[in-house]
């Protein structure tokens, strides 16, 4: 029996199922308001732009730019002790929403605000994929 800390992994639920199903197919899914066409991240019940609640899931481009980023040094979770320093990034998607995620395919020192990026899915638990972003 191991006492090693379990790494935090994404835990899909019913309302986020379209998002995680898309991720498993390599497609970034976003909600869009049928009334005002605003895109949303993360899952929401009502559109923050028009307060209506007629939302549909659509395929997003998966493209965006780095809005801001940081490099984590402190170990807040024991399972991440071997990962520090690791990057955290906020990506502004071409569709508008800003997504908290992480960068791959680039060293922490080379990440820049404004860097154009493309989604890259990573299997973080068996069958559970999450979007990260790589330079494009």
């Amino acid at each position: 029996m191991t006492t090693e800390a379990q790494r935090p992994v994404p835990a899909p639920d019913d309302e986020s199922a379209p998002f995680f199903d898309g991720a498993a197919r390599g497609v970034l899914m976003l909600q869009r308001c049928r009334d005002c066409s605003a895109f949303h991240w993360p899952v929401c019940e009502v559109c923050t732009e028009c307060l209506r609640d007629d939302l549909e899931w659509v395929e997003a481009s998966g493209r965006g730019t780095v809005h801001t980023f940081g490099v984590m040094h402190r170990v807040y979770h024991p399972a991440l002790a071997k990962d520090v320093p690791y990057n955290l990034a906020v990506v502004e998607l071409d569709e508008g929403p800003r997504v908290s995620a992480a960068m791959v395919g680039v060293s922490n020192e080379k990440i820049r605000v404004g860097m154009p990026v493309q989604v890259a899915f990573e299997e973080m638990a068996p069958g559970v994929f999450a979007p990260k972003f790589k330079p494009r």
């Binding site: 790494r7 992994v9 899909p12 986020s16 991440l80 908290s100």
Partner: peptide, 18 residues
């Protein structure tokens, strides 16, 4: 759970610090 589970999976801890 759900999409809120993504942040800790990426390592977004430290709340306000981060």
């Amino acid at each position: 759970r759900g999409m809120a589970s993504l942040a800790p999976a990426y390592g977004f801890f430290g709340a306000a610090n981060t």
